[in-house]
Computed example of a mutant assay.
Amino acid sequence: MAWLVLVLSGLLETAWATALSASRGFSRLWPTVIFGVTLVLSMGGLAYALRTIPVGTGYAVWVSIGAVGTALVGMFFLGEGFSVLKALCLLLIVAGVVGLKLLH
């Protein structure tokens, strides 16, 4: 259960990071509200997961899901551009986190 919550919390990190950008420095109401709600839910889920998952592994998984997810949203939906080198870098992040999980 903790791993499922951790993965969902990582996806919520992607949501709050995207909403933070869309809020334009907290000057737009609905993206700011979405940012606040998803931030609290993401942090709450991380806190719950860290009850049973070691902090180093849990935080690395959480932040990597958020980082990779946010980068993919930027590339495919926000016009930040896709390249093979960017994809390779994201795969390296995923490989590192998988390695941490396997060594856990």
Rank of each mutant, 00 (worst) to 15 (best):
G44D: 05
A71H: 03
V68M: 07
P54E: 15
P54A: 15
L72W: 08
A71P: 03
A67F: 10
V37T: 10
L50I: 06
G36V: 06
T32C: 09
G56Q: 10
M75P: 03
G69T: 06
T32F: 11
Y48D: 03
Y48S: 03
Y59A: 01
V61I: 15
T52Y: 09
T52W: 11
I53C: 09
I34Q: 06
G58Q: 13
G66K: 02
S42Y: 07
L72D: 13
L41W: 12
T70R: 10
L50Q: 04
A49P: 01
I65E: 00
W30A: 09
G66A: 12
L29K: 13
Y59T: 00
A47T: 11
S64H: 03
L46H: 02
V73Q: 14
V33K: 14
L50Y: 06
W30Q: 08
G36R: 12
G66Q: 07
V68S: 09
L29G: 11
T52C: 04
L41Q: 09
R51S: 09
G56A: 12
V68H: 05
I34M: 08
M75S: 04
P54M: 13
G66C: 04
T57P: 04
F35G: 00
G58T: 07
L46G: 02
M75C: 07
I53S: 05
A47N: 09
I53M: 12
L46S: 01
S42N: 10
R28N: 09
V61W: 05
Y48F: 15
I53Q: 09
A47F: 12
L39E: 02
V55W: 10
T38L: 02
F35P: 00
A60S: 10
T70Q: 12
T38G: 04
V37R: 04
V73I: 15
M43W: 15
L72P: 03
R51F: 07
G44Q: 08
L50N: 02
A67H: 07
